[in-house]
Design a protein around this nucleic acid. Structure first.
Lengths: 153, 153
DNA sequence: GGGGACTTGATGATGTGTCATTTACGTCTG
DNA sequence: CAGACGTAAATGACACATCATCAAGTCCCC
């Protein structure tokens, strides 16, 4: 006997889904048009920028981004083709590799970040007060814990 | 002068992004594995099920789903190939067409829905109380209004 | 009723994500 | 040190999304 969603649940869930879809689409379009980067590119570049010397092992990047290994590999190939990152061999573990931020990659992320942050602020953060943010963070953390619990079983 | 995110904002935004990515991935995987449908398939089938006689004009479907026209067209082609929907000519407007739910499509959505709803409940709704849902809905509505305001300018 | 503008919808090219598999190297154990 | 097992990463096939463009029909106004 399925317990379907009641009206409150239905409205909240749909509103959430709609916000997710439209906000993500909007952020992606802004980034793409203003900087020629996708949201995925942006995430990769941010992670590399935060890393020491702009270099990371792919598997470290993978854990940080929570991407599938194969997705990362394909994406890095495309970014490499565009000159945003480069791959280097890893001394000491010859299976391994390093992903390195190129100068062009660093330029791209530095040019893109202000506009992206401004857009996140304008369309999301400015629509929420501190209390909303706390509630959202608490909810998200609980959902994530629930997902973790499931994955590890 | 970019105003970067402060700690509270950073944490909330990241938690939201992470929840979004992982929850969507989890829901998609559950649906795919248990029913052989993608989330996109599911949305299309739900819209058709709600429609009178399981038939809709593609452009009506498009507005309801808020998809790009081309995405819908491609997706319908794939679903048609799999026998989930069918296309029919539209009397009265010979440009137009109808998308029709096939018996197989109806079976698929009826088989998939209970599991999907249960998963949404287990991983999302059960992690929120009524107050959380109200807050989320209010926030989502405000973000959506902001997006609307931008689009129409 | 003829011609432009809009609407409905399909298509091809390209970039992206996932799954399954492969390659190559490391590690541990008998 | 040989073989089994595990780990790092790449690859190929396919499903999906987006963009630009096209084809065909409808609407409207002169």
């Amino acid at each position: 006997m399925t317990r379907w969603l009641d009206d409150d649940e239905q409205r909240a869930w749909r509103a959430y889904l709609q916000m997710q879809n439209r906000l993500t689409a909007h952020l992606g379009r802004q980034l793409q048009q203003d900087s020629g980067l996708s949201l995925a590119d942006y995430e990769v570049l941010v992670a590399l920028t935060d890393a020491d010397e702009g270099r990371l092992r792919p598997f470290a990047l993978q854990e940080q981004l929570e991407w599938e290994q194969s997705r990362l590999s394909h994406h890095l190939s495309r970014m490499q083709r565009r000159g945003l990152v480069d791959r280097e061999g890893c001394p000491g573990d010859r299976r391994g590799a390093f992903v390195v931020l190129t100068p062009a990659g660093r330029e791209a992320i530095e040019a893109a970040a202000p506009g992206h942050v401004a857009t996140v602020r304008e369309f999301f953060l400015d629509q929420a007060d501190r209390e909303d943010l706390r509630t959202l963070e608490r909810l998200a953390d609980r959902v994530l814990r629930r997902l973790d619990a499931d994955g590890r079983s």
